[in-house]
Amino acid sequence: MPDLSANTSKNIFSPSNPQSAQIAEKICTKIQKEKLTPGSFLGTVESLTDQYGVSRSVIREAVGALRGLGIVTGRPKVGISVAQGDVGSILEKVLIPQMSQHKGWMEIARFRVVIEIGAMPLVVENIQPDQLDRLQQIVSEQAELLASQKLDPKFQLKEFVKQDMLFHEILLASADQSLISQFHQVVVNYFQQGIQHFPQPTQLFVEDHQQIIEAIKAGDPILAVEQMTRHLQPVLTMISSLKEF
């Protein structure tokens, strides 16, 4: 079932009629409160018109907005049902228009920072030994990548960023929270579109990753948050510098 807690917003639904936005929110609230599963029948346009006391055109626009987000599905003469959606597909539909603007990319970057820092206590609590081993392996591979003097700087940056994203993906997956992991996977896909803004990687990045691992090994969530905050500070600095453009 789609997670609707972060999507019941007029800014997200954005139908042209404010009344349609209200109906869309009410339908989402119903799905959430009643914990309706994919395939659950919501009604026909006619029955929803009677239920909410609005015109058929308002219902059609509200349903159209929800269908576009992957929250509901419907067929003529059959009716409207809860769709087989997920957080990732819904968030992607929301982010696509957002990413068309320079300001939108910066907001996605901030979003990534908030997710990663906030998830660290859960990472410390839930990470498994094999995940910790994989993180350590990535750090070693990053160190080897930087040690090579024969690589083209652009290729080195591309490969280092790929490894960096994998490090953070495994880290967030170890929080053992599906919602966090799905959000991060989608956000990172868009965040990578700004690779031209990334600084050339240095050994400091590798050391930051190692310090994060050490904090996790120590079972210290406060230290883990501090280390992740320090690690992501260059991202915040980069965002601030882009405001001028």
Results as ranks from 00 to 15, higher is better:
Leu146Val: 01
Leu157Gly: 09
Val187Arg: 04
Lys35Val: 15
Pro129Ala: 04
Ile80Cys: 08
Ala218Val: 02
Leu236Thr: 01
Gly194Glu: 04
Pro18Tyr: 06
Val82His: 07
Gln233Leu: 15
Gln137Asn: 11
Lys162Tyr: 03
Glu34Trp: 05
Ser140Phe: 05
Glu159Thr: 01
Gly79Thr: 12
Ala147Cys: 10
Gln128Met: 14
Thr73Phe: 14
Leu223Met: 10
Gln156Pro: 04
Leu242Arg: 07
Phe198Ile: 09
Glu61Arg: 08
Val113Gly: 06
His231Ile: 01
Ile195Trp: 01
Met1Leu: 15
Gln98Ala: 12
Leu171Asn: 02
Ser241Phe: 02
Gly70Arg: 00
Leu145Asn: 01
Ser57Asp: 11
Ser240Val: 03
Met99Ser: 15
Asp3Gly: 05
Gly85Tyr: 03
Ala62Tyr: 02
Leu48Met: 02
Arg75Ala: 13
Pro121Cys: 09
Asn126Lys: 12
Lys217Tyr: 09
Gly53Gln: 10
Arg75Val: 13
Gln210Arg: 12
Gly70Cys: 00
Ser14Asn: 15
Thr237Phe: 08
Phe205Asn: 13
Gln233His: 15
Leu223Tyr: 05
Glu207Leu: 13
Arg60Val: 00
Pro221Gln: 01
Gln136Lys: 15
Pro121Val: 04
Ile180Ala: 07
Ile115Ala: 02
Glu125Gly: 06
Thr29Arg: 06
Lys77Leu: 12
Asn17Gln: 13
Ala109Gln: 12
Gln136Asn: 14
Val188Gln: 05
Glu25Pro: 09
Ile27Gly: 04
Phe198Thr: 06
Asp50Gln: 12
Arg134Thr: 04
Ile195Cys: 06
Leu132Gly: 13
Leu146Tyr: 02
Gln210Asn: 11
Glu144Val: 01
Leu172Cys: 03
Glu25Asn: 14
Asp220Lys: 14
Leu36Pro: 00
Ile12Pro: 01
Ala215Phe: 09
Ser178Arg: 10
Leu157Cys: 10
Phe111Trp: 06
Val161His: 04
Phe191Arg: 10
Leu179Val: 11
Ile31Pro: 08
Phe198Asn: 08
Glu92Phe: 11
Gly79Pro: 06
Lys77Val: 14
Ala62Thr: 00
Thr37Cys: 02
His231Val: 02
Gln193Asp: 09
Ala65Arg: 14
Phe13Gln: 10
Gln32Arg: 12
Ile27Thr: 01
Pro2Ser: 04
Arg134Glu: 06
Glu141Pro: 07
Gly70Ala: 02
Phe205Ala: 14
Gly85Arg: 03
Gln137Cys: 03
Glu116Leu: 09
Arg60Asp: 01
Gly219Val: 11
Arg134His: 04
Gln196Leu: 13
Lys243Ser: 11
Pro153Val: 12
Leu151Met: 11
Leu166Ala: 00
Gln156His: 05
Gln233Met: 13
Glu116Asn: 03
Val54Gln: 02
Thr73Gly: 05
Leu69Arg: 03
Ile59Asn: 09
Ser16Ile: 05
Ile138His: 10
Ile138Pro: 00
Met228Ala: 02
Lys26Ala: 15
His197Ser: 13
Glu214Gly: 03
Asp133Phe: 10
Pro129Met: 00
Arg56His: 06
Phe155Thr: 15
Val72Gly: 08
Asn17Ala: 06
Ile212Asp: 05
